[in-house]
Design a protein around this nucleic acid. Structure first.
Length: 800
DNA sequence: AGCACGCCGACT
DNA sequence: GTCGGCGTGCTC
């Protein structure tokens, strides 16, 4: 007798444990850990998706176990490694095992559920009868039922008046196309067997004879070549064509990539490549920190180390922030490694993602490039893991399971005995500090390739541009823009705020239009002609009069990308300007289109939010302007300076990447701020020292580890009460050296009609912390029915 | 999550 | 009596 241990798709703490199921005799040999199954669960034996994590043979008669009702996969979708990883992740991120297992797979592999009720007899209750007519299957989730009605339905089910059927749908399907294989060897014999009036069949035969290949896609024959479907059918019937279903990739390689050989390395690059290659060969899980200024050729280092892994028959995983996954980046990798590359990014449709994933799973892809979730790519012979832009905030998942990609990468590297390379021009303080301590091996690329200098950077003090404080473009910046336009060079402008105006103010009564669901002002968007909330998505008409006092004296303040583009267009009417932000790149393919036009110099100026700071590599860009360097500095977060320094350095790096020298102009109201000063001087090292001193003084990471606890509830008082209660409990349990901050309301205290309070735990070492947090997790489960939620976020990316 | 059970006040 | 609301407990 074989028994499977199954983790079921019921995300609660009580069910966060394996359940045992009997395996049906006919499918016994088939079952293996990592396969998805359908199992009956709970009182009504409703069907849920589950993952087999173990298969055991037992001779002893088990207490009445239920039976696995079906398989969703032919082969295991998760490897033993990933099953283990899920377990570790669940523990360290305080999330459910099932959530971890499901995040490792493409979205389509989460099953869809359906509950269908059919009335077996005419129901007596009038209302219920209209909703559930006799013998008509009704999907219960699609119809509104009151709690009382739901209860009645259950009762009727027990009485047999009504049948309930559960369905689990596997959405993951390979796309199949019909392919016809030519079986004809002797065309003349076949021709003789065709009747003279079978013109369509004769056409088909002629076509087959004319085309040398043996396999034809049916759709091509019928639609492109204009042959008749019935003629094809007759051929299949007579055995001249063999029909078969073939899996097809949904995002086929449309572009042919010209293979590109390894480039010659600088001595610094060579040193880095040698060190990393040695670790790959020696199969040691050593972490490297590759600190290289923008344009120093980190990518070439990645490519050549990947090359070594491939030569040794191993595989490579390269992670990049989503916004750095530009067509340019993809091209470079594909030019080097061709069709053995799989790319996973958010631009792919679900089906396309699934196909890419399967290419990895079945071993067709040896190199995987992708954003955060690609860290779970089912590669089985990892030789190297690369995290480009390792400091990037998007590596931390912001909802459950709140994993840090970097930590997952290290876990996998230990499992595979392979090195991890963290690359950045501005490493996170955590990583840089570890390199200092010797826990990571530091590799430096201090100069740009081709001896190109880092761009000249000028800081413009906006407080001294007093003429009109609302003016967005200072004199020096405007002059530089005009110069570059005149010499047909391109410009990148950063304004880290989208929309047209960031708030509406009534000058008569002082009213500011706010989101009804959140404690934040609404942003005006001119392209949609609405006021939008950037937190919950609420939208409303732009008011013509003050909603409070009906005065006409309403004004809009704060400048976003939309307004900046408009102003710029009047200042330099000859320029062709493109805006790049969330609003203009939401549509599939629109980002690629904006970049393509800019690359072909059909636009002169690219103005956008922080998404323009990463990965763009256009040789003709010689000027980068930062319209307002202060937006990030104002945030109440301990990482505000680090984020600002990063952003300025990254965006400055877009200028002067080829022969022409670059120029950077930073406009700010805080010209003496150290983050801005050091960014101006391209001095990461000094910034690092300065910021480390501050972190040391105030006790923040990397000197302390942190956990963020967030409580939210529909009522502010409930949230506050619980937050204070948690604070007291933790105070009593935790070590004396552990510091608790708060509880405080979140900087934006209300989002989507819920109030948020948070509590920060700072610790160096606290053996009791994990148990305390597990206890809080249990408590959270118990109170979840009352609508109060607790989120535990280990190593939060921000305190906001 | 979803289902059942038990307890309790309210109502034809 | 029993209907409907609500809190609690269990799911191989």
């Amino acid at each position: 007798m074989k028994v499977a241990e199954v983790i079921v798709d019921v995300p609660t703490l009580q069910t966060n444990t394996p359940y045992s199921y009997l395996l049906p005799a006919d499918l016994c040999d088939h079952a293996a850990p990592g396969m998805r199954v359908v199992v009956p669960f709970g009182k009504g034996d409703r069907l849920v998706e589950g993952f087999i994590i173990k298969v055991e043979v037992t001779s002893t008669a088990q207490p009445a176990l239920k039976m696995v009702s079906g398989y969703l996969d032919e082969e295991p979708v998760l490897t033993p490694e990933l099953l283990k990883l899920a377990n570790w992740m669940a523990k360290t991120t305080f999330s459910f095992q099932i959530s971890c297992l499901l995040t490792m797979l493409p979205n389509v592999m989460k099953a869809k559920y359906q509950t269908i009720a059919t009335a077996n007899q005419v129901l007596t209750d009038e209302k219920l009868r209209s909703k559930l007519p006799l013998q008509v299957p009704v999907e219960l989730t699609k119809v509104d039922f009151s709690p009382a009605e739901r209860r009645k339905i259950q009762k009727l089910r027990q009485q047999g008046a009504l049948t309930i059927k559960y369905h689990v749908h596997n959405q993951a399907r390979a796309k199949l196309i019909t392919v016809l294989e030519n079986q004809i060897t002797d065309f003349t014999t076949v021709a003789s067997q065709l009747r003279a009036n079978a013109t369509e069949q004769q056409k088909l035969l002629a076509y087959l004879k004319q085309h040398q290949q043996t396999r034809f896609v049916q759709q091509n024959l019928v639609q492109t070549a204009g042959l008749s479907r019935s003629a094809v059918q007759s051929f299949v019937k007579r055995g001249w064509l063999k029909k078969m279903m073939v899996e097809q990739r949904r995002a086929p390689e449309l572009q042919q990539y010209v293979r590109d050989a390894a480039k010659k390395l600088t001595s610094d690059q060579q040193r880095a490549v040698t060190a990393i290659q040695a670790a790959i060969t020696a199969e040691v899980s050593r972490p490297f920190l590759l600190e290289g200024v923008t344009g120093s050729g980190k990518t070439e280092v990645y490519l050549q180390t990947i090359q070594r892994a491939l030569e040794l028959g191993k595989q490579a995983l390269m992670l990049v922030p989503e916004i750095a996954l530009t067509p340019q980046m993809v091209r470079r990798v594909k030019q080097r490694f061709g069709t053995q590359v799989a790319i996973i990014h958010s631009g792919l449709a679900n089906g396309e993602k699934y196909d890419e994933w399967r290419r990895i799973r079945n071993g067709a892809a040896q190199v995987v490039v992708g954003a955060r979730s690609a860290v779970f790519a089912p590669l089985q012979r990892l030789g190297i893991i690369i995290l480009d832009e390792e400091h990037d905030a998007s590596y931390k998942q912001e909802d459950n399971p709140r994993y840090q990609t970097r930590s997952v990468a290290f876990w996998r590297a230990r499992y595979h005995h392979c090195p991890v390379v963290l690359g950045s021009a501005t490493p996170s303080l955590e990583s840089r500090a570890r390199a200092e301590k010797g826990r990571y091996q530091l590799l430096r690329l201090p100069t740009r390739i081709n001896q190109q200098k880092l761009p000249q950077t000028q800081v413009v003090d906006m407080t001294k541009q007093a003429a009109a404080p609302t003016e967005l473009f200072s004199e020096p910046l405007l002059t530089a823009i005009k110069e570059k336009l005149a010499s047909h060079e391109q410009i990148v402008l950063l304004l880290n705020r989208r929309g047209f105006s960031s708030f509406m103010l009534c000058r008569d009564c002082g009213y500011v239009l706010q989101c009804p669901n959140c404690d934040i002002s609404l942003t005006m968007h001119l392209d949609t002609k609405t006021m939008k909330c950037h937190y919950c998505g609420y939208e409303t008409q732009i008011p013509k009069t003050c909603p409070n006092c009906h005065s006409h004296q309403i004004r809009y303040f704060g400048t976003g990308t939309e307004k900046a583009v408009q102003q710029l267009a009047t200042l330099v009417p000859q320029a062709r300007i493109a805006r790049m932000d969330v609003d203009t790149t939401k549509k599939k393919g629109s980002l690629a289109e904006i970049l393509r036009k800019f690359g072909q110099q059909q636009t002169d100026i690219l103005l956008g939010t922080q998404m323009i700071a990463k990965g763009l590599d256009f040789p003709n860009v010689t000027l980068v302007g930062v319209l307002n360097a202060d937006t990030g500095l104002e945030l109440p977060d301990f990482r505000a300076s680090e984020r600002t320094f990063e952003l300025l350095t990254q965006v400055a790096g877009r200028a002067g990447r080829a022969e022409k020298p670059g120029q950077v102009i930073i406009q700010t109201y805080n010209p003496d701020h150290y983050a801005i000063r050091y960014a101006q001087q391209h001095d990461y090292e000094s910034f690092f020292r300065h910021e480390m001193r501050l972190r040391h003084l105030s006790g923040y990471p990397p000197y302390y580890f942190t956990v963020k606890l967030t409580v939210n509830a529909p009522q502010a008082r409930e949230a506050a009460q619980l937050a204070f209660q948690l604070q007291e409990e933790l105070q009593a349990q935790l070590a004396k050296t552990t510091i608790l901050l708060g509880p405080t309301p979140r900087p934006i205290a209300r989002i989507n009609k819920r109030y948020y309070y948070q509590l920060i735990i700072k610790y160096k070492q606290d053996p009791k912390l994990h148990a305390s947090l597990e206890h809080i997790q249990q408590h959270a489960q118990q109170i979840s029915r009352t609508g109060v939620q607790i989120a535990i976020d280990p190593d939060p990316i921000s305190f906001m």
